[in-house]
Amino acid sequence: MADYAWRKLLQLIPTVIGVVTLVFLAMRMIPGNATGFMAGDNLSGDALAAMTERLGLGIPMWQQYVNYVTGLLRFDLGTTIVTGLPVSQLILEALPITVMVAVLTVLISCVIAVTIGTIAAYLANKGKKWFDQLITWLTMLVDLMPSFWMALLLMLTFTLTLGWFPASGTINFSDPGQMLQRIALPLMVLCAGQIAMIARITRTAVLEVLGEDYIRTARAFGLPQLRVVFRHALKNAAMPVITVAGLAFGNLLNGTIITEFIFSIPGIGTLLINGINSRDYTLVQSVILVYAFLFILVNMLTDFIYKYIDPRVRL
């Protein structure tokens, strides 16, 4: 297992280098000049030059790259243009909130989605289609709903009409009750999307596994149907489900950007949008990197879980 982990990490190196380089290059490919882009039209020539100096853009490209990478390794992400605060500090403040929301979403939605998907598949396998059809249509509906629209609907219902959940205010980790109330709506929006996606793949995967020969073998040896599902089907179906859940995490991150924006949750999504609106590219490139690393990390985690379940997986 340790050996496997090392190999997997080694394999990731080219991708990570690629990601870092791509972000670096992209930010310098902005038409015209990055400084000008950030400053807008309201800086004079001298001020522009000073800013170029401060951002370290006055030196050759390769030197900028070296500085940038060494900075990254030391977690020195520069300072924001508007406030002059260190970017790393802003990210460290915002990241726990986003991660907490994401982790909660994954936990809640996996439990619900796997249950729903399994029941649908089990019934469909026996030829009872109505629940399956219902789930199929519901998941499609929810999956295709624009998340910002769903968020607005929920806000309209629960905040503006019923007044149950606040849609603004600070997030305080020391008061879980208040915090949960604050993040309840974003959680609902994010979970809905995740459940829709994972339930659908669970259904397909379990249904497929139930058609496998080894399921028939187990049945031919008198294992009751429900135990067949728990003993053989779920474990085998777990693999495609985990793969998709890993990919769905990308959607989840997309969703956090939008829900944080709507519900004013001070996570890295809000940081990103603010950064873009204030044309603060130091901040934007760092936040994008954080998102990418989160995504890569989760995909690596799913690989490990996969390996843990399936003895066949080799590198």
Binding site: D213, Y214, T217, A220, F221, H232, N236, D310, P311, R312
Partner: peptide, 16 residues
């Protein structure tokens, strides 16, 4: 009644 199936490659649970 004991049963033996056709395809030994797929008739056993691969992860057990």
């Amino acid at each position: 009644i004991g049963t033996v199936f056709q395809d030994p490659m797929t008739s056993l649970d691969p992860i057990m």
